[in-house]
Design a protein around this nucleic acid. Structure first.
Lengths: 344, 344
DNA sequence: CACGTCCCGGAAAACTCTTTCCCAGAGTAG
DNA sequence: CTACTCTGGGAAAGAGTTTTCCGGGACGTG
C-alpha cells in the first residue's frame, strides 16, 4: 500500500525499456513502437497502477486538457442548461471542464480568464451577453486575444461582436416572430419587461419585438417599457411598478422566461388572471419552467444544443480562418399564458 | 506585442535578481526578501505582464489549486443550486473549480476522479447520493482513499456513509415532520412517489415518512408506493401509473420537488385539481420551482449553503481527525398544494 | 578581535513528462 | 558489395517552477 505516486520512469524500468519508449507507448505519439515493447509497457503500467501526472504533461506539451466555461450564474437554469451541453461535449473528448461563475462582474471574469491562461487551457467558452459598455467589451476583447495568442481557442454563446467563434440565438427574429404571433391573437397594445437597458441580449429582443410592431403600424408606448434586472425578482418588481403606474396593454412580453415567471407571480399577487386579464409571453423556453401554470408562451431556444455547438466550435482544432457565427433560430411556442384580448 | 510567455526567469533577469529570489517574492514563501529587491521584482513582474505557469507550479509543489465538484446532472436545479454555493466558496479562496457531470454513472465518476488525481487537485466534493449498491460504494470508497492518499481532501453532500466529511440533509426527520404536518391537515391515506428503490436519499425520505405514519398508527398501503425515476418525467410517469391503477389516497408525497412537478403536471393532464382532488407535497424547495401553481408544499433545504458548507469542510486544511458530519435540518414549508382532504 | 549566529541572496537539484537528436541494424537499389 | 534509406530504440535536453543547500556579510558577545 504505497502512498506515493507511480511515475513513468518506474513503469519504464519495470518494463525494461527507456523512458522515451514508455512515453511513446502511453500517449500514442507519432512514433512507432514494436508490438512486443508496447505490450510490455502497457502491462507494466497496468500492474503498477500508473496514472500520468497531468501537470508534467501540460508543462512538457505546453497545452492542457482543460476547457473553461464562464457563466454569469450557474444556478440560473438558462446557464445550467447550456452548461449541461458543454459538459457533455467536453466529456466526450476526454477534457476536463473548469467552471467559472462570474456574477456579471468583469473583474471576476478577468480573474478566471487569467487562471485559465495560467493553466494553458485548451479553450474557453463564454456564455451570456455582457453589457453594451464599449470599454469593458474592449478589455474583454483584449483578454480574449491574449488567451488566443497563448494557443487557446475561444467561443461565445449569446455574445456576438467579440473576436471569437459565436453561437448566437436570433433574438431579433425570434422576438419579431413572437410579436407577430401575439398580434395575430388580436393584441394591439403591449407592455414590455425589457431587462437592463445595457444588456445586449435584452436589447436585441426588445428591438426585434418593437420592429415587428412598427412594421405592422403599431406604436409602442414608452410608459409601457419597463427596464429592470434580468432575473425573476427583476420581473416581479418591474411588473408591480408597471401595474402601479397603470397600463393599457393587453399583453406583456418579458424578454426572458425567468422575468416572465416573476411577472406572473406579481400578477397573481395583484389578483390578476393570466391570460384573461393580461397575456404574458417570455423568451428561452427554460425546461424547468415548462410546468408553470398557465404554461408560458415563449420562444424556444435549444439551450443544451447551443452549449454543445459552442463547445464544438471551440474544440474543432483545425479551423483557422475567420470567426464563425452560428445563428440559432428561435421557435415560437404558443401555450396558455397568451390568449386573444378580452373585449372590454 | 510578444506572442509568447513571460517566465519567472525573465522577470528575475529584468529585476537583476536570481530566479530563487523572484520566486520567493512572487509567491510569498516563508523566506524573507529585502524590501528593496521585493519592490524591484514586483515592478518587473508588473511591467512584463508576468503570469505564473500553473502546471509548472503544480509540478514543483505537487499540489494544485484545482477543486473538483461532481454532480449527477448540472441542469437539475437541485445540483446547480448546490454548485452555486460551492463555486462561490471556491472563488473566494482563489481556487479553480472543475465540474464533472456524471449522469449517475459510476464509470464516468471514476474517470473524473482519476483526472482530478492526475491534476493533483486539492479537494473534491461529491454531490448527490449514490445507489445503495454495496459493491459500487466500496469501489467509490477505494477511489476516495486513493485520492486522499495523494494528499487530496474529500467531502460529500447527501451521501453519508462514505469515508469523508459529509454534509447531509436530515431526510428522515424532514420527511417525518412533513408527514406529521399532512396528518395534521387531516390526511390519513397517502400515496408516495418514492423514486428509485436503491437510491439512498429517496429511501431515507420514504422511510422517514413511513415511520411517522406508523408512529401515528397509520398503515401505508403497498399499492400506494410507486417507485420510478428521480426526475420530473419519473414523477409524471409514476403518477399516471398510480392513477391508472387507482388509489384511495387523499395526499401524495413525492420524495423530491422535481418529481412533484411531474406529478402535478400529470394530475393536470388527468383533469384533477390540486389540492382539491389530491394534495401534493415535495421535498427540497428548489428555488426555480417556487413559482409553480399551486405553490408546492415541501421541505426546505438550504441548498446553496449546503454547497458552501461542503466546500468549507473540504478546504479546511487543518483538520485531520475523524470524518465530520454536518446534518442539515429541513423545514416544512406549507403552501397551497396541500389542504385538508375533501370529505366525500 | 575572534567566534558564533542570523539574515538573505544565489546556484542547482528536483518535480515528471515530451520530444529532439543520435545511432545501430535491417532492408533496398544500383 | 557499397551506399543509401528506413525503422525503432535510447540518451538527454528541455518545459517553468519551488526548495534545499551553501556561502558571505552584518551583528552581537565574550
Amino acid at each position: 500500500m504505497d502512498s506515493g505516486y507511480v511515475t513513468l520512469e518506474q513503469v519504464a524500468e519495470h518494463a525494461g525499456v527507456s523512458l522515451a519508449t514508455a512515453s511513446r507507448v502511453i500517449n500514442g505519439s507519432t512514433r512507432q513502437v514494436s508490438q512486443r515493447l508496447r505490450d510490455r509497457v502497457t502491462a507494466s503500467a497496468q500492474e503498477l497502477g500508473y496514472l500520468a501526472n497531468a501537470s508534467a504533461q501540460t508543462l512538457a506539451r505546453n497545452s492542457s486538457s482543460l476547457v473553461g466555461l464562464l457563466v454569469h450564474d450557474i444556478a440560473d437554469p438558462y446557464f445550467s442548461s447550456i452548461a449541461a451541453g458543454v459538459t457533455r461535449c467536453a466529456e466526450e473528448q476526454g477534457l476536463v471542464l473548469v467552471l467559472g461563475s462570474t456574477g456579471r462582474s468583469a473583474q471576476k471574469e478577468g480573474r478566471v480568464l487569467a487562471a485559465l491562461r495560467s493553466h494553458r487551457a485548451k479553450a474557453v467558452i463564454l456564455v451570456g451577453s455582457r453589457s453594451t459598455d464599449e470599454e469593458s467589451n474592449a478589455r474583454l476583447a483584449r483578454e480574449i486575444e491574449a488567451f488566443r495568442r497563448q494557443g487557446g481557442r475561444v467561443a461565445c454563446v449569446s455574445q456576438p461582436g467579440l473576436p471569437a467563434d459565436t453561437v448566437s440565438p436570433d433574438n431579433a427574429s425570434g422576438a419579431a416572430a413572437l410579436a407577430r404571433h401575439l398580434m395575430g391573437l388580436g393584441h394591439r397594445r403591449f407592455a414590455i419587461l425589457a431587462g437592463p437597458s445595457d444588456l445586449r441580449t435584452a436589447r436585441e429582443r426588445l428591438d426585434g419585438f418593437h420592429g415587428a410592431l412598427s412594421a405592422a403600424g403599431l406604436e409602442l408606448d414608452h410608459n409601457n417599457v419597463m427596464h429592470g434586472a434580468f432575473t425573476r425578482d427583476g420581473g416581479y418588481e418591474s411588473t408591480r411598478r408597471l401595474m402601479t403606474l397603470g397600463t393599457d396593454a393587453t399583453c406583456m412580453f418579458a424578454v426572458n422566461d425567468v422575468m416572465a415567471t416573476g411577472a406572473m407571480a406579481a400578477l397573481r399577487d395583484l389578483g390578476m388572471k393570466v391570460p384573461e386579464d393580461l397575456s404574458v409571453a417570455g423568451f428561452d423556453d427554460i425546461p424547468t419552467l415548462r410546468d408553470l401554470t398557465p404554461a408560458l408562451t415563449t420562444v424556444r431556444l435549444p439551450l443544451e444544443e447551443m452549449g454543445e455547438q459552442a463547445a464544438g466550435l471551440a474544440l474543432d482544432a483545425d479551423h483557422e480562418g475567420d470567426f464563425r457565427v452560428v445563428t440559432v433560430p428561435g421557435e415560437v411556442v404558443a401555450r396558455e399564458s397568451t390568449a386573444p384580448p378580452t373585449v372590454r
